[in-house]
Simulated scan of single mutants.
Amino acid sequence: MNVFVLFPLFDEKIHRKKDPWQIPLHLFRLGHEVKILAYQKNNSDPITSRVDGIEIVRVKPNLLHLLFYLIKNSRNIDCIISYFGNWITLLSGISFKLKKRKGVFVIKMDTDGSYAIKEKNLFRLFYKYFTHLLFPFFVDLIIVESPQARNRILKRYWWLENKIIVLPNGVDTDTYKELEKSIKRPKRSSKKRIILFVGDVIPRKGVDLLIKAFSQLEKEYPNYIVKIVGDVKADPTYKKFLDKLIQSERISKKVIFLGRIGEKELIKEFHKAEIFCLPSRSEGFSIVLIEAMYFGKAIVASNVGASQFVLERGKAGLIFEKDDLNDLIFKLRLLMKSDRLRKFLGKKAHERCIKYFNWSRIVEKLDSYIRKIRQSYEVR
C-alpha cells in the first residue's frame, strides 16, 4: 500500500518522537511504501530526501503547489493521512477523492479534537458549513487522541460517529530497548531522591508551581532534590523569575537546571528519578508523560490535556487540579513519603504504557482500519 502523510510543517528534528514521524515510520515497518509530503523550509531544502527508508517530499510553501503535486500523483496513492482540519486538509481531501474514489483519506486530529475554525467572521462561518456538508463525503476515517476529544467532535458533528476512532499517541518501545542496551543503568541513591521535570522552561509548563510546592516540602523530606530538563532559553524572562523564586525560597542547591540533554542522558535521568512531575497549565497529548510511564516512574500531573485519559483517571499516576498549589503539595507528599505507593504506581504506569501507548500496537490498529476501508471499496 502506498501511503502519503500530509504534514506541511514537518521537521525531522522537532517531530522525531511525535506522531507525524512515528506513524509513517511504523507503517513503513509494516511493509508499506510511505512518503511524507511537506513544505520546503528554505530554498536550500532538497526536493526529496530519505530518512530511515521513508521518502520526504518537499514542495514550495504554497497550497497550490501542494495540491498540484497531490493531483498529479493521486493515481499512485492508496491512502493519505492528513493532520488537523484546515483548508489544506479540506482541499487536499477533495482533490484526492475526486481523482481516486477508492483512495482512503484519513484525518489525524490534535488532542482537543478541534478541526473547524471558530466562526468569527463570514469567511469562517462559510468554512464551518462547507465542512459540515463535505466532510461526510470525502473523509473515510478521523483519528482523535482521547475519548474526550471524540466526544467533543460528536457534539457538533454527530453524523460522523462511525468514522471517528480513538488512537492515542505513544512511544517507540523498540527504539528505547535498543538505546538501553548501550546505556549502563545508573543506580538510584536513597540519600538523594529526585523529582524530575522534562519540558521547555516556559510559564505554560508550570515549573514555578513545582518549585513552590517543593519549597514547602524540602525540609520535611531533605533527601529530595528537583531536576529540570529542558530548554532554559525558551523564555529568558520566565527563567529569571524562577531563579529569583529559588533564591527567595533558599533552595538553590536543591533545584538543578540541566538544560537540553541528549536521548541517552535523558534515559539515565528517568532511571535516576523517583517521581516525575508534569505541572502544566495547558497541554496537548504529552509525549514526555508517556515516556515517564514507560520508565516506570511514579507520576503526578495536572488535569489538563489528555492526562486524565493517559493516567486512567488516577489509577496509573496521581492527578492534581491545574494551578492548585495545595493539591500539588498534597499529591507530591503522598509519593515522597511512600516507597510502596511509588513502586505500585510506577508498575501500573509501565504496564499501561506497554498495553495502550506503544506505537507498534497503535499503528497496527490504524493499518487494520485502513485495510478494512480499502476492502469495503473493493466489494462495491
Rank of each mutant, 00 (worst) to 15 (best):
L141T: 03
G206D: 00
R193L: 07
V57T: 14
V304T: 09
L332F: 11
K177E: 05
G103E: 00
R101C: 06
K233I: 10
F241Q: 05
P147G: 11
K41D: 01
K72N: 03
K219N: 15
S248W: 00
V304Q: 08
L25V: 01
F137R: 14
L134D: 06
Y221I: 12
L325C: 06
K99V: 10
S182V: 06
N86G: 15
F276G: 03
F28Y: 15
K163D: 12
F285A: 09
E180V: 04
F257W: 13
A273W: 05
D78I: 02
F197T: 07
L134H: 12
F105C: 03
L311G: 03
Y157N: 14
W359R: 01
I290Y: 00
L122R: 11
I225F: 04
V379W: 00
K254S: 09
F105E: 06
H350Q: 12
S114I: 15
I81D: 00
S307E: 07
L245M: 10
A306G: 14
I275V: 14
V363F: 06
S49Q: 14
I202Q: 04
S302M: 04
L134A: 14
W359Q: 04
I165N: 05
A149M: 09
K233E: 15
K184W: 00
A292P: 00
T89C: 12
K60M: 11
L122F: 14
Y176A: 10
Y176L: 12
M336D: 07
F105G: 01
R342V: 04
L210P: 06
V232N: 04
S74F: 07
P203V: 02
V144I: 09
K233N: 14
S302H: 05
Y221H: 13
L37A: 04
D339I: 10
R340E: 14
K264Q: 13
I261W: 11
K192F: 06
S307R: 10
V198Y: 03
E283L: 07
E312M: 10
K181M: 04
I329Y: 00
P279Y: 00
L210D: 01
W87R: 11
Y129P: 02
R150W: 02
F96Q: 07
E265S: 09
Y83R: 10
S252E: 08
Q308M: 11
V57C: 07
F135P: 00
G305M: 07
G113N: 09
D243V: 13
N151I: 11
K264F: 00
Y176Q: 01
F68M: 02
L91N: 10
V226P: 05
H132Q: 15
I261Y: 13
Q40A: 13
L266V: 02
I290S: 01
I54Y: 04
P46E: 14
R58Q: 09
Q40G: 03
P61C: 08
A149L: 07
V166A: 08
F137H: 11
N358G: 08
E378P: 01
I77D: 01
I56S: 05
A298G: 08
N223E: 15
L179N: 03
E269Q: 15
Q375Y: 14
I47H: 11
I107C: 14
R260Y: 12
F214W: 01
F197R: 02
K184G: 04
L98Q: 14
G262L: 06
L9T: 12
I142G: 05
K254Q: 12
R250C: 09
W21Q: 02
I153R: 07
I299M: 10
K120G: 09
Q247W: 05
G317D: 03
L6F: 12
L66F: 09
N162D: 15
R371L: 10
F197L: 02
R29L: 13
I275M: 08
